[in-house]
Amino acid sequence: MTTAETSVNGTPSPVATPVLRARGLVKTYGHVVGLDGVDLELYPGEVLAIIGDNGAGKSTLIKCLTGAEIPDQGEILLDGERVHFKRPQDARAAGIETVYQTLAVAPSLDIASNLYLGREVRRPGLLGSVLRLTDRAGMRKAARRHLTDLGISTLQDVTVPVESLSGGQRQAVAVARAAAFGSKVVVLDEPTAALGVRESGQVLELVRTLRDKGVPVIIISHNMPHVFEIADRIHVQRLGRRAATITPRSHTMTEAVALMTGAAEA
């Protein structure tokens, strides 16, 4: 395993306790090795990009970090405390919000219901506690606000089912959900893959906003210019392992790609 992280560590307070830390994560699917002993540190207030070829284990890594998969080996620490996420809702409850590569939206439900899926707000009083009535109007209003905050003006009708949206609009819904509720860490798996130039810019802007609010962000992307524009540090994933941790200042895009493909060693 490489120790590149310590040698070329980026600016964000290397002495601080990582908000999220993974050590020696292993995850296999039958004979397929998804993760082969991965380490990862996410420091307070930073944007950490994860890059790597297809199948390098980027999605598997963040799934293990967010409770969507349970690693076979290794440990995960949140604020220095060991955590055992068994389900995505465990990570959510700890303030970690994720946009998975598959988006994880319910197509037949409307935008507002998707934003609040799994954390529906009930009406106050007996209506909510006994009759379990959800506060539909309140959730719709808040959903509209979250989308406006994101600068997504084309999604004003939050009662439209998600399946009638374009791929990029669905992605926007998933990103808005994570941004609205991520209080501790926000994880984005290729959030701009289906987005147009303007919408991608909005997502990058949103990532900066989250960082400025003090919420660290993990973002997976194949788009090198985006990565170099936004990341404080870059985790290079290769063949189920961390090949290196670099920064946009320590390495050029060409060098980063060389690390990714194995053409160069850290």
Binding site: T102, S108, L109, L117
Partner: peptide, 28 residues
């Protein structure tokens, strides 16, 4: 009422729609 106005109802639709998406959205 239960299907359209409670969280349980939304979860029933979400599970029927796409089980993996529902799981990742934090639904048991």
């Amino acid at each position: 009422y239960a299907l359209s106005r409670t969280a349980w109802g939304k979860h029933v639709y979400a599970v029927g729609d796409d089980k993996e998406a529902a799981r990742l959205s934090g639904i048991s």
